[in-house]
Design a binder for these strands. Structure first.
Length: 573
RNA sequence: CGGGAUGUGGCGCAGUCUGGCAGCGCACCUGCUUUGGGAGCAGGGGGUCGGGAGUUCAAAUCUCCCCAUCCCGACCA
């Protein structure tokens, strides 16, 4: 295409509200424009990238035997009521009422619909099935952010597997795992598979594919010495045991005027690791205590996962005061009976501890956890920290910020059972099939690539997804010879299937070079009178201009580029 | 939903405190010069100052209400 007739509105400066690198570059490069918070138009360049990502997704899904479908994006409330998610999900789902007063939802995912279609499966001979689609999803995010990274409307590749038994599900899951590794490699993303929490999706196992980036929203624990990696919502670690202090082992109440924090109490001679942190939460409507060591952080998702609690939130101060008789900062679980108490295992066997006395300005010392506190349930709810020991090899873990680029779930029979699926097995017995679901956000993948493939001058697309593979930069458009040669090369490249962008704009060379770099075209051929005098044009690779700078005869350009492109695509395919 | 900030032409910003002709840079249009890394000169077009109400002779500026956007947190199938 000729740049002069394209809509590529580049900007010299990014809008003030764009913070994430990918957001700034995609806006500056003329790829996207915001309509409202969480809703973006994809302009021609972005849509070309989008289509290339989609193509890779389809190819890899097809390769594992998945079949492409297209499901409705508007669902009746009834299917969501049947699965229980109508109530479980809440405000994140867009809902509306149609003219007949029927309640409707804008689909955020499609397990219910898949399970409904799958009611037609009646025999084990029909299984397994894998269906996928690339379709717009709607989620009423409480806080859309960072450009395309978190939006309310986005295209997602969602696929679903249906198997007769657990072994079948394992197989479908593994096929997806492998497909995802190939997909991310082809997209130029270094995505690490990590153990994850399944959250409200339900199910047993889940793996997230994480791309390290400061723009991400998840923290992941990775071990550089072995292959352990897990979302902090699930990660465990080995920490040194704390020796109980020598000291008075009997309970003693002492005055602690104005001491409300772990830190303040620590300064008063009670180190955090010898304190019991007492949190008060409403767990599915029931007031509950959650106990941790003073120097540990609470990991809410771990708590949800291990207690199957649906709704948890810190209790209001007034509620706390009414139940315990004191405000946060002076709370403790000693002598409490009748309030459900959860405790982190790191408190097991601990004594000579300090905790709040449930009386403002007073604490208790000499607390023996086993003796003085009635724990209803021991649960690992501690957030691991950077540098702690890997649970599988005990070397130090690193905690890194990541973008969640993909997530695969073993759902089990939650949806197939709810929707009433059943098939006959080889013995004529009725079986409820088991399902998996697997997602990759297209726009988020684009943003993740933009986030990680860029430099000070702009984007650097991998050839596999670049909006154009090659840009032909004509330095002097009013030089007839230049234009003639450029036009010839342009037609030649096009005829050989190369995506080429012909920068025929009447702009100064500096502007053209800067724009080409900003929009991230991986390969550049510069055509100008200076080179043509010697019968050559200049080539360089966006990712490393200095080392790759090459002079090419006009006739060699096509073969040179074809080889470059196929070499890079082969590397990742 | 809690905390913080911002809203002035397509983008970046000044002006708001202390009320008095709506400005600057980039981008855009015309002409001339220039032409291998974001040109120069001259001329020109474009703004309900987020919206509404109020105070005032006079409001971008002061008051009240609302809206939008961004950041942190909560939440995130």
């Amino acid at each position: 295409m000729r740049w002069s007739s394209l809509f590529i509105p580049t900007l010299r400066e990014a809008p003030a509200e764009a913070e994430a690198v990918s957001h700034q570059l995609l806006v500056r490069g003329g790829f996207i424009r915001q309509l409202q918070s969480g809703h973006y138009s994809m302009l021609p360049l972005a849509w070309r990238v989008n289509k290339k990502i989609v193509k890779i997704l389809c190819e890899e899904m097809d390769l594992i035997g998945a079949q492409e479908v297209m499901l409705p994006a508007i669902h009746p409330a009834s299917v969501w009521q049947k699965s229980g998610r109508w109530d479980a999900i809440g405000d994140d789902m867009f809902r509306f009422v149609d003219r007949k007063d029927a309640e409707q939802v804008l689909a955020m995912t499609n397990e219910e619909v898949v399970a409904t279609v799958a009611l037609e499966l009646s025999s084990y001979r029909d299984l397994p099935q894998m269906w996928y689609q690339i379709q717009t999803k709607f989620r009423d995010e409480p806080r859309p952010k960072s450009g395309l990274l978190r939006v309310r409307e986005f295209d997602m590749k969602d696929s679903y597997s249906i198997d007769i038994d657990d072994a079948g599900l394992d197989n479908s899951f593994n096929l997806h795992h492998q497909a995802y590794e190939r997909i991310f490699a082809r997209l130029g993303l270094n995505a690490i598979p990590v153990e994850a929490s399944s959250g409200a999706m339900g199910g047993s196992d889940s793996v997230e594919f994480m791309v390290e980036s400061p723009a991400g929203e998840d923290d992941v624990a990775v071990c550089d010495s072995c292959d352990y990696s897990a979302n902090v919502e699930r990660a465990t670690s080995i920490i040194p045991e704390v020796e109980n202090r020598l000291g008075n082992e009997t309970l003693e109440k002492f005055e602690t005027p104005n001491i409300r924090t772990i830190e303040a109490l620590s300064e008063a001679g009670h180190p955090p690791e010898h304190q019991i942190k007492t949190l008060v939460y409403m767990v599915d409507g029931e007031l509950s205590l959650i106990l941790l060591r003073g120097d540990h952080q609470f990991q809410e998702q771990k708590f949800r996962d291990s207690t199957s609690a649906m709704e948890i939130a810190p209790a209001e101060e007034e509620t706390i005061k009414k139940a315990l008789g004191a405000s946060p900062g002076s709370l403790g679980a000693v002598g409490i009976d009748g309030i459900k108490t959860f405790a982190d295992p790191s408190l097991k066997g601990r004594s000579v501890m300090t905790t709040g006395a449930n009386e403002d300005d007073f604490h208790l010392s000499g607390v023996d956890v086993d003796r003085d506190i009635k724990v209803d349930q021991w649960v690992d709810v501690r957030s691991i920290a950077d540098g702690e020991g890997c649970p599988s090899c005990s070397n130090p873990l690193r905690v890194v910020r990541c973008i969640e680029a993909g997530h695969i779930f073993k759902l089990g029979r939650k949806y197939s059972e709810a929707m009433g699926m059943s098939v006959l097995d080889s013995e004529g017995n009725s079986q409820i099939p088991t399902m998996g679901s697997y997602g990759i956000g297209v726009g988020r993948a684009m943003a993740a690539i933009a986030e990680t493939c860029c430099d000070d001058s702009g984007l650097i697309w991998p050839i596999s997804v670049a909006p154009y593979e090659v840009v032909l930069t004509v330095v002097k458009t009013d030089d007839e010879n230049s234009m003639e040669v450029a036009d010839k090369i342009y037609k030649d490249l096009k005829a050989h299937g190369i995506d080429v962008l012909f920068d025929d704009r009447e702009e100064r060379p500096g502007v053209k070079f800067a724009d080409a770099e900003l929009i991230g075209i991986p390969l550049r051929v510069t055509i100008g009178p200076r080179g043509l005098e010697n019968g050559i044009v200049e080539f360089l690779d966006r990712s490393d201009p200095e080392k790759t700078q090459t002079e090419l005869g006009v006739e060699e350009v096509k073969d040179f580029l074809l080889e470059k492109i196929s070499a890079e695509l082969d590397l990742t395919a």
